[in-house]
């Protein structure tokens, strides 16, 4: 898919995703080694966006499995269409049982769910397994077979093996420790907060109307907030939101008043806002 690490960066950048060197290298390796990519990091740094960007670059279909507590085999893998099977049975009254049985367990009555969808077919696909940590431990067991051999076993049909391996991205917020077995099968990528220069480029890309100097001060203030010990530090998503807010407010430079009025956009807890205000000397007005 990609020829070099730089190729990854440039092509991802074309879709509007500015990748740090770590991200570009790992994506390149995931493609080369044919291994799934496990992405961890705080909320709002673009974990899901990465999968979308890769899909766009590769011209692949994005198949998404959103995990939640209680997601199970029939939601993740496949399910038999019971209603249709019943209809089929009652429609063919005169048939022998053997004919019916082989017929109702055929492809026609199978409802593929994301994991099976990603494996079947020849077209390129990107499989995104989002918020893997939210799923129960049992689902991880299910993923093991899919991720190591790229095959799914349906007892009535046999084993479906991927003709073309999908590019797999798993994301996790680390609210639960994923099992060692799953981690071993993946390349691990931690997306942290971008460095100042990269974040400035991201802000300029997403909010092009913002002036260069304002973008710079926005990024610096956010960087300072991240160094504080807050309950929820602002993420890239919040930086962009803030930049948009400032634009909407018509501010062309940062000053105490503007920052204090709009601090709620980047900080989501009252204690955090108070603490940040104290540290940034906002009360010195």
């Amino acid at each position: 898919m990609f020829t070099s690490v730089d190729d990854v960066s440039t092509r991802l950048a074309e879709t509007g995703y500015l990748a740090s060197p770590a991200v570009a290298t790992t994506v390149f390796l995931a493609d080369r080694l044919g291994k799934p990519l496990l992405v961890e990091g705080p909320a709002g740094v673009g974990k899901t966006e990465l999968a979308k960007a890769v899909a766009e670059v590769a011209g692949a279909r994005l198949v998404r499995l959103q995990c939640y507590e209680g997601v199970d085999e029939s939601r993740a893998l496949y399910e038999w269409n019971h209603a249709k099977q019943l209809l089929r049975i009652s429609a063919g009254r005169d048939e022998s049982w053997d004919d019916t049985r082989t017929d109702i367990f055929s492809e026609e009555f199978l409802l593929p769910r994301p994991l099976l969808t990603a494996i079947r077919g020849d077209d390129p696909k990107v499989l995104l397994i989002d918020e893997t940590d939210k799923a129960d431990v049992e689902v991880e067991g299910l993923l093991l077979e899919v991720l190591s051999d790229f095959q799914v076993t349906v007892p009535e049909l046999g084993t479906v093996t991927a003709a073309r391996r999908p590019f797999v991205v798993l994301t996790s917020n680390a609210s639960r420790e994923l099992s060692e077995a799953l981690r071993r099968r993946c390349l691990f990528l931690h997306i942290g907060f971008p460095d100042e220069e990269l974040e400035r480029r991201i802000v300029r890309l997403k909010v092009p109307a913002l002036t260069e100097t304002l973008a710079e001060s926005v990024v610096r203030v956010v960087g300072a907030l991240r160094a504080m010990d807050l309950r929820k530090v602002p993420s890239v998503a919040e930086t962009i939101d803030w930049a948009r807010t400032l634009l909407a407010l018509g501010a062309d430079t940062l000053d105490e008043q503007v920052v204090r009025d709009s601090l709620g956009v980047i900080l989501k807890h009252q204690d955090d806002i108070q603490k940040a205000a104290a540290k940034l000397d906002l009360d010195a007005l």
């Binding site: 690490v5 060197p21 770590a22 290298t25 790992t26 390796l29 995931a30 080694l33 961890e40 680390a174 060692e180 981690r183 071993r184 390349l187 691990f188 990528l189 931690h190």
Partner: peptide, 14 residues
């Protein structure tokens, strides 16, 4: 890139 590549393959957590 070498550093990141080795980190991606050898490590499992932050």
């Amino acid at each position: 890139p070498l550093r990141e590549g080795l980190a991606a393959t050898l490590l499992h957590g932050t």
